[in-house]
Design a protein around this nucleic acid. Structure first.
Length: 627
RNA sequence: GGGUUGGUAGCUCAGUCGGUAGAGCAGUGCCCUUUUAAGGCAUUGGUCGAGGGUUCGAGUCCCUCCCAACCCA
């Protein structure tokens, strides 16, 4: 970023001016007595405090001035007065910029309007200061770090998604909701660690650079170690090293770490993502089901204080949503008024069309803001409907192409009038329904609610027949293929029968599993690395825990038969010996205790718990193409 | 990989048939000692994502490319 503009130049000039006065606006240290929040919480009139933070707003009153100071805990208002600071200091204070870090010393007070604030200055010199003739009092404020670039706007926040992701620090400054999500993510991971430590699990760290990337079927990233002169891969799973540790006698272990998969990016996929894996010797998949349920409910309770999680229509834009609805209501009213007026006068001029056009454009904009394809709420559907109608009308209607000063014949005007009347007639009911939807439905019921108090357990085949018909498994393979195709599933030509069924599961069942569901008794073909169910050898002892329409966590009774494991791994490697992790197989041959294992995608768990629709909104620095 | 939408001032956004580049906030200057999206007056600020093309003239039309978001695979 080499761009320069006048705003940066101005700030650099201010920096130079400060330096010329012998002030270094980049300090090494400042010790606040407390955080901004603590100062407000422990309010005592006239109590002396020292606070530090970033200046996020200022209100200049001439001979006095208010600023907002913000640290991680929150904001507090500070008040500076010319007759307290003196002309010189007050002048410097007035020329502070938004974004500067400042430390202030002063006393607490409450303003006329009742806001708890700190009055800068008026604090006696600290005893530790060198005393004597020239003992200078503590400076009432210290510039701790001058910001040379302007911060994002205070009111609108930062909307540009690209800047939000590329310069996340600006996002964190401008959008408090974003910071809240990221802090909660940290709390979630903290509570996950607590959970396992309390259950006497050992936290381990295993190699991220692996000679043979195993434990999952995914494309790895490749790298090269110069000194060793060989290639390494970034891990795609933690599993195989954890099992080596089970062999080594670490019976209960977990790891939270990054996995890397060289595949596509999407709303749910980041090339590097955080994975939790945990293994429990002498347990099985049922043990792990209990663990997952207990883990997620414990974390939700501790971090969110509730087991009922609401996903707002669009978390971050809640404020904008409310504003948009208000604007829409206004526009709706205006449309009706204008329309009635034009009907009464029955002489519609070009200017009147232009007014309509303006209202129309503004309406379109609001609808676009409100539209979010990921939301299937009734309100959103009404919005999509209204948008479609708008677009159709704009395609057909000529009245949008009128402009000021344009000469129009009577005949044309009549034609446009007719078009416009038909357009309005068509669109008004939609506006009405939209208004009613927005007005009548309480905001809570627009939200998706995930209830973690009830965890359903369902067999894979039962879920399939529920959706695809009771006769699904009695059909011939060809009939199943046809039916899946008719239902709209994408069926590859080379798909085996179980893959056809699974395509139906992935497309039509998994997305509907919003409430916590353990899908069990998966067909053995689907999960070749798991152990067969003793009660039904066509299925395996595996669960997939689905919440929020996504698989959050798979769990296994782990394969500990080295010969069976070798066969499946060889089959997976497709005869390519170099892809076979021989060292792992040797470990198994030394004997691995029976064990249950789970993996949990932390990013997706955070999406679910924090109501975020995109994985990028729970990762501080999501991967983007370099500019 | 395919489709859709978008990229205009530091930020949020307008920009109508192709005809001198706009607003609010931020910034700068002046006024104002309890304001809080402070207020009043004045004012600065742009390679309109990049590069070609059409045109007397392009933010606007055409082509190519870059970046992003969303949808699909």
């Amino acid at each position: 970023m080499e761009d320069t503009n006048s705003l940066i130049e101005q700030r650099k000039a201010k920096l130079a001016a400060l330096r010329a006065k012998g002030i270094d606006p980049f300090q090494n240290k400042f010790t606040p007595t407390e955080t901004c929040k603590q100062a407000r919480d422990n309010y005592v009139e006239s109590r002396e405090v020292a606070l530090a933070g970033r200046i996020t707003a200022h209100r200049d009153m001439g001979k006095s001035m208010f600023i907002d100071i913000r640290d991680q805990s929150g904001r507090i208002q500070a008040y500076a007065q010319k007759n307290v600071l003196g002309d010189e200091q007050f002048h410097i204070f007035q020329h502070l910029d938004l974004g500067d870090f400042i430390g202030v010393k002063g006393t607490m007070f409450t303003t006329k309007t009742g806001e708890i604030s700190v009055k800068i200055g008026g604090v006696a010199a600290a005893p530790s200061q060198p005393s004597g003739d020239g003992a200078s009092p503590l400076p009432p404020f210290v510039i701790l770090a001058k910001a040379l670039r302007p911060p994002p706007a205070k009111y609108y926040g930062l909307e540009d998604t690209e800047i939000r992701y590329r310069q996340r620090y600006l996002d964190l400054i401008a959008n408090p909701d974003v910071k809240d999500v990221m802090l909660k993510r940290s709390a979630i991971i903290h509570e996950i660690r607590n959970f396992f430590h309390e259950r006497n699990y050992v936290e381990v760290e295993t190699p991220a650079m692996q000679a043979i990337p195993g434990g999952a079927a995914a494309q790895p990233f490749k790298t090269f170690h110069n000194a060793l002169g060989c290639e390494f891969y970034l891990r795609i799973a933690l599993e195989l090293y954890h099992k080596r540790l089970l062999v080594g006698g670490i019976d209960k272990l977990f790891e939270i770490g990054k996995n890397f998969r060289n595949e596509g990016l999407s709303r749910r996929h980041n090339p590097e993502f955080t994975m939790l894996e945990a293994y429990c010797a002498f347990g099985d998949y049922a043990t792990m089901m209990e663990t997952v349920e207990s883990l997620i409910t414990t974390v939700a309770q501790k971090v969110l204080g509730s087991l009922v999680i609401e996903h707002p229509l669009k978390c971050r834009f809640k404020k904008e949503l409310n504003n948009s609805i208000i604007k829409l209501k206004y526009l709706h009213k205006k449309l009706i008024e204008d329309f009635n007026k034009s009907l009464i006068n029955s002489d519609v001029t070009t200017e009147a069309y232009l007014d309509f056009n303006t209202v129309f454009s503004a309406s379109m904009r609001e609808l676009e803001l409100l539209s979010h394809p990921n939301n299937k709420t009734p309100l959103n559907q009404a919005i999509q409907q209204a948008r479609k109608s708008f677009i159709n009308c704009s395609m057909e209607g000529n009245f949008f192409r009128l402009s000021p000063g344009m000469e129009v014949t009577k005949k044309e005007v009549d034609g446009y009038t007719e078009e416009f009347v038909s357009f309005i007639t068509q669109i008004l009911p939609q506006f009405d329904s939209l208004k009613n939807e927005a007005g009548a439905i309480p905001p809570e019921s627009l939200n998706k609610v995930i209830d973690l108090t009830t965890w359903r357990r369902a067999k894979y085949n039962d879920l399939v027949t529920e959706k695809a018909g009771a006769n699904w498994f009695t059909l011939s393979a060809a009939e199943r293929r046809q039916k899946a195709h008719d239902m709209g599933a994408e069926i590859g030509k080379e798909f085996e029968d179980f893959e056809v069924t699974n395509a139906v599961f992935s497309k039509f069942i998994e997305p509907t599993l919003i409430q916590p569901t353990f899908v069990t008794h998966l067909p053995k073909e689907l999960v070749p690395l798991a152990k067969l169910s003793p009660d039904d050898p066509t299925t395996v002892e595996v669960f997939e825990c689905c919440i929020n329409g996504q698989e959050i966590s798979p769990g296994y009774t782990e394969q500990n038969d080295p010969i069976a494991q070798r066969t499946t791994l060889e089959h997976q490697a497709g005869g390519e010996q170099q892809k076979l992790d021989e060292d792992f197989l040797v470990a198994l041959e030394h004997g691995m205790p029976p064990a249950g294992g789970i993996g949990i995608g932390i990013d997706r768990l955070c999406m679910m718990l924090l109501g975020q629709e995109s994985i990028r909104d729970v990762i501080l620095f999501p991967q983007l193409k370099p500019k």
